[in-house]
Each structure stands twice: as structure tokens, then as C-alpha cells.
Amino acid sequence: MKVKIRNLGVDMEVKNKGTTLDVYKPDGKTRLGDLKISKSGLMWCNGKAQTGPKATWQEFIDWMNS
């Protein structure tokens, strides 16, 4: 996968607004969606959607550890 960071900062704490990762297929041309990351959790926005499924950090951690 090709993943791009929209806003790049150094030693930056994620705030309420968070940041967004643009996710593309390995060809770098086909956009799959966005992963929005905030201090409250994560949200996957499929394709060009602006909203999508959400997970709190604890839900995400539990899912990854299962």
C-alpha cells in the first residue's frame, strides 16, 4: 500500500482534530480511502466518503490483540 500523511509534524501530539492518512493501492494511483486519527480513536473513510466506521483506541487495541 502507498500511505501518505497529509500533515507532517515532528514530535507532535495528536489533538482533537487529529490527522488524516491518504491510502492508495501500491500503484500509487488508485485511492482506497482515508484513515482519520484523533486522540479519541480512528475512523476509516472508504473511497471518497467523508465518514465511516469508527473505533476508540481501546477497541482498536483489543481488535489488534485478538
Rank of each mutant, 00 (worst) to 15 (best):
N46A: 14
K25V: 00
P26I: 02
R31S: 14
Y24M: 01
K4F: 05
G41T: 10
D34N: 08
T30V: 09
D62K: 04
T20L: 02
M1H: 11
K54E: 09
E13W: 13
T51R: 03
D62R: 01
T20I: 07
N46M: 12
K54C: 10
N16S: 08
P26A: 00
V10C: 03
E13M: 05
D34A: 08
S38W: 00
K2H: 13
K48N: 13
A55P: 05
P26Q: 12
L21T: 10
S40F: 06
T56I: 04
S40K: 14
C45K: 15
E59T: 00
V3F: 05
F60P: 00
T56A: 05
Q58R: 11
V23E: 11
L42P: 01
N16C: 00
K54F: 00
E13C: 12
K54Q: 12
W44Q: 05
K25E: 10
T20M: 14
V10Q: 15
V3L: 00
D22Y: 10
A55L: 13
L42F: 07
D27S: 06
T51A: 07
T56G: 09
K2G: 01
E59M: 11
G28M: 01
G9A: 10
K15E: 15
W63C: 04
A49L: 08
Q58T: 15
Q50N: 01
G41A: 05
K48I: 09
C45V: 01
Y24K: 02
I5L: 15
G28P: 03
S38K: 06
V23F: 15
N65T: 03
P53V: 14
T56H: 08
L8R: 14
L8T: 08
I61P: 11
K36W: 09
D62M: 04
K48F: 07
V23A: 14
G28E: 10
K4E: 15
S66R: 07
K39C: 12
M1F: 10
G47L: 05
T56F: 03
K2I: 08
